[in-house]
Design a protein around this nucleic acid. Structure first.
Lengths: 134, 134
DNA sequence: ACCGTGTTTGACAATCATTCTCATCTGAGT
DNA sequence: ACTCAGATGAGAATGATTGTCAAACACGGT
């Protein structure tokens, strides 16, 4: 994102937040809030659904997790591998994800925006494809 | 879109479809299905909400309208100005939209995909900014 | 260790866009 | 006019996300 990082307000550490963070840390695929919630349940770390949503939003605002929307509009989350701005190439069969950087695109986006007199530009770029194993 | 055009099955012409198509033709901004539905109502062309959804989906599948998702997940539609593949630069204040083409991005997307062994790639690219009048 | 206070949580209700159901209607060919 | 598959509409159903609010909790001061 090109947007200024919505600065992380001081958040208080809690068992629930920790459980969620830990789960996300060991997962590499994108999961929905609902998925994460039930994974926590079955693992014994009971956390309310609303809490999962609240924390995911907070983490996303702080840039600690990536968010993207599936074709059917559901939000899916995944912990960032890098701090840097990046995009995703997702396999529509198995969900395997590759984080890609695109200096070229960033530049293009900025230029297009400037050329049209738009300021404060952000962009959404996601690539979907089918990976080799399919 | 890079995806093969889901070929338009033969669609039967109906009053409802015509009304919707006409409304879209005279509108240049992105509107949600709900918006379109109520505009049709207040204009006298009564059309069921489900029908609006069905037709919008059909039109989108045929590539007759552009679809994109607002930040809060709502789908918004607009008739395409061009047949060609393109993306949008949308003002987050007033909704003004500019259709942009990006040979550079298309190429980038294709290359990134190939480099990672993905085939059959499609992409989602939207730019949001604030236009001059704000 | 004990309190007071401002956060965070959880259970559940409420929203709300979108989809489904299914009986009825309509367009097009005969 | 007759028929039938595709289209429509009213309303119910779905399902993710958000709102509510009382109870539980973390933290700094004592």
């Amino acid at each position: 994102m090109t947007s200024p990082p919505t600065e992380s307000a001081s958040r208080r550490p809690t068992r629930q937040r920790a459980a969620l963070a830990e789960l996300m840390a060991e997962t590499s695929e994108f999961l929905s809030a609902q998925d994460l919630h039930s994974k926590l349940q079955s693992r014994g770390d009971s956390v309310g659904l609303a809490t999962v949503y609240r924390n995911l939003q907070a983490m996303a605002a702080d840039g600690d997790v990536d968010v993207l929307r599936t074709d059917d509009g559901e939000c899916v989350y995944r912990s960032c591998a890098t701090d840097a701005h990046h995009h995703h190439l997702v396999c529509r069969e198995c969900g395997r994800t590759v984080e890609v950087e695109g200096p070229a695109v960033e530049k293009w986006a900025a230029e297009v925006a400037r050329a049209n007199g738009f300021s404060d530009v952000t962009h959404t770029i996601e690539l979907f494809g089918t990976c080799t194993s399919h």
